[in-house]
Amino acid sequence: MNAVLIAIALVTLGAAAVAMTLRNLIHSALLLIASWAGVAAFYLWAGAEFVAFAEVLVYVGAVSMVVLFAVLLTRRSRDDLTVASDSARRAFSGFITGGAVCGVLFGAVIASPMGVMSSPTPTVTVRQIGTQLMGTHAASLLIVGVILTVALLGAIVIASADRKDNSEDTP
């Protein structure tokens, strides 16, 4: 059981790490999609089927498309895709901060006593999720719906070009 988890973790982390270091943006985005799929595999491993499929549907299906479209829309020519390498200072300070956070988190996880719990996989049916979403968490569901609507409207307003700018965009 642990072997499967370690394999999933290695694939996910590897894809994410390589994605963050590549210079070709398209390759980065596609590798990140692979790492999201790895996260979905982890959910499956943990027995949360519904969340795994939702993750694939939202991230691999939808967010990936938004990202790829954004990458293609924000470049001037085809060869513009390889990002200029970042300054060494920035990368160095990034690594220092990230490494420090990583050290703290790892230390905390390893040091904290967590008994070996051999509880059976909790099963949660779609029906349970549905009743809880519509019952106990109905208010949060409504709020999430409003947030999504507002966010998408806002995204359209921000991204759509001003009418007077059109002459500038034509070549």
Partner: peptide
């Protein structure tokens, strides 16, 4: 559980390093 938490912390830190060290907004 500890393995899961290590996995998630490692993923978090990769994301953090990427967000801090890269200068491309999409990344």
């Amino acid at each position: 559980l500890q393995l899961c938490l290590l996995f998630s912390s490692a993923l978090f830190c990769i994301g953090l390093i990427g967000a801090l060290a890269r200068s491309n907004t999409i990344l």
